[in-house]
Write a protein that binds this DNA or RNA. Structure first.
Length: 967
RNA sequence: GCCCCGAUGGUGGAAUCGGUAGACACGAGGGACUUAAAAUCCCUUGGCCAUAGCGGCCGUACGGGUUCGAGUCCCGUUCAGGGCACCA
């Protein structure tokens, strides 16, 4: 048999694909399009590990499959090239981040090329190149120039709103905004340009806002909500504090309802949809206006439990709320100020962990409009300024947080639900019958002669009734709130897209569209300036000359028509929010993409990437695309029709144990483990001395868990002098843990080594074989030999003893056809469902069947090569060529499944009595159930199973089981 | 606390509509070939009992239910993973 020389084969076909531009794709009106996309990678210095290609392989298989089915498949790849690591590298070494980024990209490309992807590299994009970020800046400018009409749920040009203001003031137009405003046309027209600009900021989709931001002092930048995890920064794990700052923001919240509704139209996993639903956090409730007693101050509270208005015993304001100053009485002023100061001193993280009750009385009372009761107004950090109105009505009987507060401050608790016992805890459930609302008017306010009474209603009915009452009598209104916040869109960093904005006499002004892109300026240092400006403050050539329409030296700023340019840069998600559109027409210099390309490619049919982007990229992209859809640029409301989230491939981390303060390393099985309750972790001891676990590189481990001491010593200078304490068998045993693959954990397996040893086709096959794509699983090389062996067997099907191809024109046998068509059916269905892991065993079975049948028929072996082509393109090409084809197997046709080859003349079924299969029988495939029953009865009688028993019922399920019930 | 997803051998995992659970692979054990190793090939491998051979019982986290028949459907419980989290 001819040797399976994967190195030669893979090298040959890689060159061939490049030379023939096999994967170049162009719009073709005569063919149906299919758009497959991977989340593009951030090119890190560590290069690819075996986890990265998992999704790429999965989508490549699908892309190749669709192409074989005759679709015109777009399968592009590019780089999310802006990012913090490159910037930090630049700060450390002084090397421009572009240099390290491009070097990393080259390394990625080299690694990717080895795996045999069908990417069209002609369409590569990099978010950090001016021809790309031109369109990021352009989209930002469009958002700046737009507002969102709540009635039509659509973005519109800001000029429309301006005109409206000029003619009618705010009027009753329901428009997405930061703060509700009300002014007349006269007022608007009387304002100067500066004031008008400020007011418009309240409505623009990209706006400068004075908002509470997540400030990370260590990183020296603000972070978006999804970049803060458990109160610390996602990157680096540094503390984050709340700070009021003027920042660029995107009004993502305007699209809340559309982002929610869109989820029903797309084919994503339930868990990711659920995550997004939680993140958007739609909550239907009621806003009620509360008067502050003995003053003319009013405030609005938001509640989802309008039915509990009769149980209100106090109100609470968020400490950051502007109302705090307005309501606080002089006597309480000092105490309140001190409390507000205390709250400010607490970090986000402290507030998240520590839920002890704190608060202070403001001295004021609010009037419950339903009962007329005067209730004290408190200030407490458990009410958040950023959600709802920053003020709540407290119903301690039916809300556990209010309950804790009431107990702490000794406030009354009034239960409102039949049978609810609130002596120990609150009754939070939304089930039950409402009671305790006054029957007569004694404690109830009448409006237009009507008083609210909820007794006897279910809670749900009571909510509806209260909503009606409140709206009809103008005490408040029905309101939908969303948890989704506007995205903070500026960062105090160097390595990002510069804003195409200059400040003309303090008014943020867009650099004309024709002058884009505004290129990232050169700086000497990548750190913030000494005066605390962001790194772009170091740029000398960074001022806008309005007359000359170009960027000029900063020193000219005081001259006529020269103004400073924005020093902030855009965040990471800016460049990754619309890259899928750019791939459709990546070299267009006139537009983000042409009308023609947009109309042809529409949107992404299949998107593959990690689920960690659920509340970041996948929300921002949907928002961005919806905006571009409103503009008519994108042709589909949703960017990604189907989403597959590949799981993580974890690595096996290995640990050696070093006795504290020595160079002695003790084998794991000799250690005594003690659990330290205080530190909540294990500690290890050897002869009374404590030993610390230290990561060791997986390359220093052999036979599963034994340390190769020589390799270990050679690995790092630190370990050169290591003395080891071996176990009685003379081995050093390491301990192991399954963790995320990471350079710092020394558990990274890189695909190059696997390619070198087994070839790309084996790697591709094996990564798919590891388990369902959507699941996380540890990398375990154990099974890879099996995949490699299979490929050798598969190869062997095609070659005779004397290295000659043994494909002949002999007619295929029925068995051959059956094996083939079973496989076609299975593999086609599996690819459609992304359960590739189950088609690999099917391939193995078919291969051994055909080998046993000594099948040499071209009729079988040709389609077989096509079937494996999506999985293992190199071997498929080689065999395809060997069989005399001059075109690529990529342009072959996916074999058509034909049921007729699988139809059996007879069918084997098990015969079952009282729940047990007793014997099997063969029937003609077209036997009717009655015929089968008759035969079974005859057979059963002859086998004496039915002796002395009465048959009460017979059931036949053709093809599987014949079941007879006896008594 | 709320929401989502899941639980099948030593391991990864198969099992379409409810129809003979454990495909396929890994690992493990045994054997063949070989001076030896690698490679390759063959046999065994859910548990218990029986074993010359036939065979029998129990088994899909646990407890119920529906059904002639449940890994699959329904109800409850436990455990593990993920998301959100003073969101009113």
């Amino acid at each position: 048999m001819k040797e399976y020389n994967f190195r030669e084969i893979e090298k040959k076909w890689h060159q061939n694909w490049v030379a023939n531009q096999t994967y170049k794709v162009t719009e073709d009106e005569n063919r149906k399009k299919f758009y497959v996309l991977n989340m593009f990678p951030y090119p890190s210095g560590a290069g690819l590990h075996v986890g990265h290609p998992l999704g790429y392989i999965a989508s490549d298989i699908y892309a190749r499959y669709k192409r074989l089915q005759g679709y015109n498949v777009l399968n592009p790849m590019g780089y999310d090239a802006y990012g913090l690591p490159a910037e930090q590298h630049a700060i450390k070494t002084g090397q421009h981040p572009e240099i390290s980024t491009f070097a990393n990209i080259d390394h990625y490309r080299e690694q990717l090329d080895k795996i045999g992807f069908s990417f069209d590299w002609n369409r590569e994009v990099r978010t950090c190149t001016p021809d790309y970020y031109h369109w990021t800046q352009w989209a930002f400018q469009k958002m700046f120039g737009s507002f969102f009409c709540n009635k039509h749920q659509k973005a519109m040009p800001i000029e429309v709103l301006k005109e409206h203001f000029e003619k009618e003031g705010t009027g009753d137009w329901d428009v997405a905004c930061t703060e509700e405003m009300s002014f007349t046309a006269e007022e608007w027209n009387s304002w100067d340009a500066r004031k008008q600009s400020d007011v418009l900021m309240n409505y623009r989709l990209a706006f400068l806002g004075e908002t509470m931001v997540n400030w990370c002092p260590q990183l020296g930048t603000v972070l978006a909500n999804d970049e803060v995890v458990n109160g610390v920064s996602e990157r680096g794990g540094y503390p984050v504090e709340q700070k009021k700052m003027r920042q660029w923001c995107l009004r993502v919240s305007a699209y809340s309802q559309r982002l929610l509704d869109g989820l029903d139209t797309i084919d994503w996993s339930d868990s990711i949809k659920e995550t997004q639903k939680n993140w958007i956090g739609r909550s239907e409730g009621t806003e009620v206006l509360i008067h502050v007693a003995e003053s003319d101050v009013n405030f609005t509270i938001f509640t989802t439990r309008a039915d509990t208005m009769f149980g209100v015993t106090f109100f609470v304001l968020a400490p950051e709320s502007e109302l705090v100053n307005q309501v606080t009485t002089p006597e309480q002023r000092a105490e309140v100020d001190e409390y507000v100061k205390y709250v400010k001193s607490r970090t986000e993280r402290e507030r998240m962990i520590d839920h002890t009750v704190t608060g202070v009385f403001s001295g004021a009372y609010g009037i419950n409009p339903i009962t007329g009761d005067k209730c004290p107004i408190y200030i407490s950090e458990y009410v958040l300024a950023g959600y709802g109105t920053g003020a709540i009505m407290a119903v301690p009987a039916h809300d556990s947080r209010d309950y804790a507060f009431a107990k702490h401050f000794n406030l009354p608790i009034i239960p409102l639900v039949e049978g609810a016992d609130v002596s120990e805890e609150s009754y939070d459930a939304k089930e039950g019958i409402v009671t305790n609302s006054p029957v007569s008017e004694e404690k109830s306010m009448k409006y237009d002669g009507e008083a609210l009474c909820l007794n006897g209603l279910t809670i749900k009915e009571a909510i509806q009734e209260t909503k009606r009452f409140v709206s009809e009598h103008h005490l408040g209104r029905v309101k939908v709130n969303y948890r989704l916040r506007d995205a903070i869109f500026s960062r105090q960093r160097y390595w990002g897209e510069p804003f195409p904005v200059y400040y003309k006499n303090g008014i943020p002004t867009m650099i004309p569209e024709e002058c884009l892109p505004v290129e990232l300026p050169e700086v000497e240092k990548f750190l913030p300036t000494e005066t605390g400006e962001p790194p772009l403050g170091n740029a000398q050539i960074w001022a806008w000359d309005e007359a000359a329409r170009k960027i000029v030296d900063k020193s000219l700023i005081d001259e006529k028509n020269v103004f400073p340019i924005e020093l902030y840069t855009m965040p990471g998600f800016a460049g990754s929010s619309a890259y899928y559109l750019r791939y459709m027409d990546p070299r267009n210099t006139e537009a983000l993409l042409s009308e023609k390309a947009a109309a042809y490619w529409q949107n992404v049919d299949l998107y593959v990437g990690g689920s960690e982007h659920a509340t970041g990229h996948l929300i921002y992209s949907r928002f961005w695309n919806k905006f571009l859809f409103d503009l008519g640029v994108s042709k589909k409301e949703e960017p990604f029709q189907k989403l597959i989230n590949q799981g993580m491939i974890q690595g096996w981390s290995s640990f050696v144990y070093r006795i504290k303060g020595t160079q002695q390393y003790v084998s794991f099985d000799l250690l005594e483990t003690r659990y330290d309750d205080a530190a909540k972790k294990n500690r290890y001891f050897y002869q009374g001395m404590e030993a610390d676990p230290i990561y060791t590189d997986i390359s220093t481990v052999r036979n599963g868990n034994q340390l190769d001491v020589e390799k270990f010593r050679a690995w790092m200078p630190e370990f050169q002098e290591a003395e080891v304490v071996l176990n009685p068998e003379g081995h050093y045993i390491v301990s192991q843990a399954i963790e995320k693959m990471s350079k710092s954990k020394y558990n990274v397996v890189n695909p190059d080594d696997i390619c070198e040893r087994y070839g790309a086709d084996t790697l591709r096959l094996y990564e798919m074989f590891l388990g369902p794509i959507e699941q996380s699983k540890p990398w375990d090389v154990a099974g890879i030999d099996g995949c490699f062996r299979f490929l050798k067997k598969f190869w062997g099907l095609y070659w005779g003893k004397d290295d000659q191809l043994q494909v002949s024109d002999t007619e295929a046998t029925a068995d051959n056809l059956k094996s083939l068509h079973k496989l076609i059916k299975k593999v086609s269905a599996d690819i459609e469902d992304f359960s590739y892991n189950t088609s690999i065993p099917a391939f193995m079975v078919a291969t051994s069947e055909l080998a046993q049948q000594k099948c040499t028929s071209r009729q079988i072996l040709e389609p077989l090569a096509v079937l494996i082509a999506p999985f293992c393109p190199h071997i498929a090409e080689e065999l395809w060529e060997a069989m005399g084809h001059t075109t690529s197997v990529c342009d072959a046709q996916w074999p058509v499944f034909n049921e007729k080859y699988l139809v059996e003349s007879t069918v084997k079924v098990g015969v079952q009595f009282s729940g047990k299969v007793r014997f099997t029988m063969e029937f003609a495939a077209d036997a009717t159930p009655q015929q089968m029953i008759d035969q079974v009865m005859a057979a059963a009688e002859s086998q004496r199973y039915l002796e002395g028993k009465n048959v009460v019922k017979t059931i036949a399920v053709p093809g599987r089981i014949v079941n007879i019930v006896v008594k």
